[in-house]
């Protein structure tokens, strides 16, 4: 599904190399987790994949179902099925949540040559998805993320994911800021989307999320590289001993 090969990325504005050869492939139907110390490049990887400005790919590449996604505009990547749940969801004053989501959904459908969804069908869809994530109607009326608590913003990201039904989902620290109950809600939301044709890349610092969203593969990222890959046990090891052992082991 998602193939990342020897990806080198530097900042566009300054001569700072952030990703130094990332190799990673996420198969359809699988959940991969990425853990790693602060500043190791996890969010950068997610931004580069989704097309944010400010980064320059100096070597390597990435494909989504065989297509070179790095050559696409951000909106084309979204239409191709890529979704990033942001570590810091953005507030957009003046743009209503419903308008935002409906515009996004219909833009994606249009790009894929599908018919736009009617207002009535959309309302039905979003009500149903919001209900399972316990997002109330009042929140949907407000401007995108404005005045939302940290946890509400994260739930809103998952709502968007549930409505847009992307094929490849990247979740950047979606668990941070969530209380225990919200963590369960969000995980249920993610698990509900798990199926044979969808891939997940879950960035997290904590085992707790992985208790709910059981990963198939766990990667450790440090200093812009994947330095170790293993099964679910690897996350448990990090939880118990931190990164010191792993870092010395590969050094």
């Amino acid at each position: 599904m998602l193939e990342i090969k020897n990806l080198h990325v530097k900042l566009e504005e300054e001569d700072k190399q952030i990703l130094k050869g990332v190799d990673l492939s996420v198969e359809a139907g699988k959940v991969h987790a990425i853990m790693g110390p602060n500043g190791s490049g996890k969010s950068t990887l997610s931004y580069v994949l989704s097309g944010r400005d400010g980064y320059a790919v100096t070597q390597g590449g990435a494909t989504l179902e065989g297509e070179d996604i790095l050559a696409m505009e951000p909106e084309e990547r979204a239409a191709a099925g890529l979704f990033l749940a942001f570590q810091y969801p953005v507030e957009i004053p003046g743009v209503g949540n419903m308008t935002f989501l409906r515009t996004a959904l219909n833009a994606q459908r249009k790009a894929r040559g599908q018919e736009e969804m009617s207002a009535a069908d959309f309302l039905k869809l979003i009500r149903e998805k919001a209900k399972t994530l316990q997002i109330d109607a009042e929140m949907l009326k407000r401007p995108v993320n404005v005045g939302f608590s940290g946890g509400e913003k994260k739930r809103n990201e998952i709502l968007q994911m549930a409505v847009l039904e992307p094929r490849m989902c990247i979740l950047d620290e979606t668990d941070s800021g969530l209380d225990v109950d919200a963590m369960k809600l969000v995980s249920d939301g993610v698990n509900a989307l798990r199926d044979a044709c969808r891939g997940f890349l879950v960035i997290t610092h904590y085992q707790r999320l992985l208790d709910h969203i059981q990963p198939d593969v766990v990667h450790i990222m440090a200093d812009g590289r994947i330095i170790k890959t293993g099964g679910p046990d690897l996350a448990l090891e990090v939880e118990k001993n931190g990164y010191a052992d792993i870092l010395t082991e590969v050094a």
């Binding site: 505009e73 909106e75 507030e91 003046g94 743009v95 515009t103 833009a107 790009a111 401007p143």
Partner: peptide, 23 residues
């Protein structure tokens, strides 16, 4: 940042700009 957020959800740049202009 807002523009990128909208585009990352699939809204083309022009349309995303229009949304922000209206806002």
């Amino acid at each position: 940042t807002a523009l990128f957020y909208l585009r990352a959800r699939g809204v083309p740049e022009r349309q995303a700009t229009d949304l922000l202009v209206l806002a």
